[in-house]
Simulated scan of single mutants.
Amino acid sequence: MAAVLWAGAAAAVLFVAVFSIDGWTRPGYRPLRHPVSALALGPRGRVQAANFLCCGLLVTGAAAGVLGVGGGPLLAAAIAVFGLALAVSGVFPMDPMRGYPPGAPEGTPPRFSMRHQVHDAAGAAVFLALPAAAFAAAVVLPGAVVSWYSALTGAAVLALLLLFSRAWELDRPLTGLIQRAMIVVGWTWLALMLALFAVRAD
């Protein structure tokens, strides 16, 4: 039980490390503007696709561990939805747009492919399941520090999600930065919570 929880925690940390390093070293990719999902496109797209898939599946496995050590069905379900939706994001990449990969149109396409629509739906599930998990943890986990940290994380992710959604619609130059802030806040909380459950299970 502890092993799957530690694996989920490590996956959350490695997810951020992989897209950060890949994004800053990818030719033609602009981390401040482009979303993390765009890294699944282009010659090195398999790196981020695998990052989505591996992290998603490991976190989904960790959700079973959360349930097994008394995290409650609501928290475990929210984490499982998050993990599965993240894995789907790796299977169905977004469409090329906004200058990435190099040679893609600078603007937004008038119509999206079916795979892009699936990716969008999966992304929405990811970024809604994460604050749902944080709010569930604030209710079910003992300890004022953990409870408040979880509640604040849920609120911060929702606020950043609103900012990101607006920035994405208007193609703001710092769209990618806002999304990265949201991911770092959310994934850090997730890694810490899974590590906490892993310690309990040991």
Rank of each mutant, 00 (worst) to 15 (best):
A198Q: 03
R115E: 09
A133N: 07
L57T: 02
L67W: 11
A121K: 12
S113T: 13
Q179I: 06
D202H: 13
L41E: 11
A181F: 11
G154R: 00
T153E: 06
W24C: 04
S113Y: 05
L53S: 05
L170E: 15
L58H: 12
R166N: 12
F82E: 01
W148K: 03
A63R: 01
V59D: 00
R166S: 14
P105V: 05
L57W: 00
G61A: 11
S150Q: 05
M94R: 07
T25V: 14
V66I: 13
V140K: 02
V81S: 06
L5F: 13
M114P: 05
G176M: 08
P105G: 05
A10K: 09
A159I: 12
A3G: 00
A195K: 01
A125C: 15
R33H: 15
R180P: 03
L58M: 14
P96F: 04
R30K: 13
A125N: 10
L141P: 07
A7F: 10
F52K: 10
V36W: 00
V16F: 13
G72I: 07
P102L: 12
D202N: 14
T25M: 14
A10R: 06
A134F: 01
V145Q: 06
A155N: 03
T153R: 07
T175S: 05
A38F: 14
A137P: 00
F197Q: 05
A7N: 10
L174C: 09
L53G: 02
F112D: 08
L58N: 10
L32H: 13
A7Q: 11
I21G: 04
A134Y: 03
A40C: 05
W189L: 03
Y29T: 06
V4F: 08
V13W: 01
A155I: 02
A38S: 14
Y100D: 01
T60G: 07
D22L: 15
W189K: 03
L130M: 15
G103T: 06
A80Y: 02
G68P: 01
L74G: 03
L84R: 00
F92N: 02
V88F: 07
G56T: 11
M94E: 11
A17D: 06
L158I: 04
G28E: 13
S147G: 13
S150E: 06
A12W: 06
F127Q: 02
V4Y: 07
A191S: 15
V59S: 01
L161A: 15
L75P: 00
V199K: 08
A85Q: 10
A144H: 14
V139H: 14
H34P: 05
N51L: 09
W189S: 03
M97F: 05
L163R: 15
L170P: 03
L5H: 13
R180V: 06
W168M: 12
A155R: 04
G71V: 10
A125K: 10
G99D: 12
G42I: 01
W189F: 06
L53T: 08
L174G: 07
A144S: 15
A104W: 02
G56Q: 04
R111G: 05
Q179E: 15
M97L: 11
V47I: 15
D171I: 10
L58V: 14
V140M: 09
I178F: 01
V157E: 02
L141N: 10
A151K: 03
F15W: 15
A198K: 04
L74S: 08
S20P: 02
A122C: 13
P43S: 10
L58Y: 10
M114G: 08
F19D: 12
V81Q: 06
A136W: 02
T60V: 12
S89I: 01
L41W: 08
G103H: 05
V91R: 11
